[in-house]
Design a protein around this nucleic acid. Sequence first.
DNA 1: ACCTGAACACCGTTCAAGT
DNA 2: ACCTGAACACCGTTCAAGT
Lengths: 186, 186
Amino acid sequence: MTSATTRPMRADARRNYDALLAAGKALYAGGGVNVPFEEVAKKAGVGQGTLYRHFPTREHLFAAILSERVGLLERKARDLVDSGDVWQALREWLDLYDRSAAEYRGMSVQLSDGLVDGESPMAAACAPMKSSFAVLLERAQAQGAVRPDITAVKLLALVSSLPRDPDHGRAVGPFLDIVLNGLRPS
Amino acid sequence: MTSATTRPMRADARRNYDALLAAGKALYAGGGVNVPFEEVAKKAGVGQGTLYRHFPTREHLFAAILSERVGLLERKARDLVDSGDVWQALREWLDLYDRSAAEYRGMSVQLSDGLVDGESPMAAACAPMKSSFAVLLERAQAQGAVRPDITAVKLLALVSSLPRDPDHGRAVGPFLDIVLNGLRPS
DNA sequence: ACCTGAACACCGTTCAAGT
DNA sequence: ACCTGAACACCGTTCAAGT
């Protein structure tokens, strides 16, 4: 329930925000969550104070970085809800989710943590995706194709916490498949 | 292939080593991997140089802390190898593994990472446990009860990376069960 | 309202000096 | 052979001063 309209940012603030986000993407893509936060400010060409003003914490920045992907995934979920094969839809979506996590590797752990704790900016950023995925999942559960004792958030947390291959960043070996397989009711 | 006999440590070195290990256990039990490494030296009442001499890296200390558990798990695996129900044995062992991971929470991620990268001190410390668990797993695979495309190390890495409940530190909700379930051949 | 960068604090790691 | 602790470097975070 955030207010519907937010005052537009001042021009320089907007510019800095965008620069920081771009810098963040460039630095945190492909593995390195350990890049000093400071670097983001440097790369964006702004003072650290500005960085902290826009992103009080690393997690806030990560959440912003991921939000594009979140949009994509949300749309994908909406599309798949019309598909005939419930199970196949789930598989396909989770595969895309995994590929997305692969793109920003180090962040997947943060994603996982954020999703479970619920109060985090991560959780907030993921909310839209989460709820449209929930539809997909619950539909499968209603049809008895998936065990009832798992929620959308938990499942997402699980998948994003899977150990990832250092090369391509995707969940290693048969992990995703094991999880999918394990979702069938026992 | 390490040399069979290692020169015994000098008395003071031994004493310091033990004190550091004890301090490490006390500090890292129950969640906090983020406790400054420095604190370990302080708590043990030795200089930092001494800490670094005995444990060049956090991971070395963690490996040492876990080694007791590793012994327990190794023995458990040996016991279970004689049990009739292959599947039940696997379930029981992995459950104990999960409870062990729960005891030193923050370390489970490190464990998971260490297991996959293979060169780490973690991997070395876990070697005995790993191989006796492998017997258990391979037996189940030979009988066709478990899918063949998973190795012992990978499975351990998977389980130790599961999101954990902040309260009791065990794998959350139905995650362990999902993984177990997913191990059955599709 | 927003930006800057100096300043402080904390922590990891090393190494010269000591026994 | 081992220990100590001061010293350095790096990084996170804040805040007084500026526009």
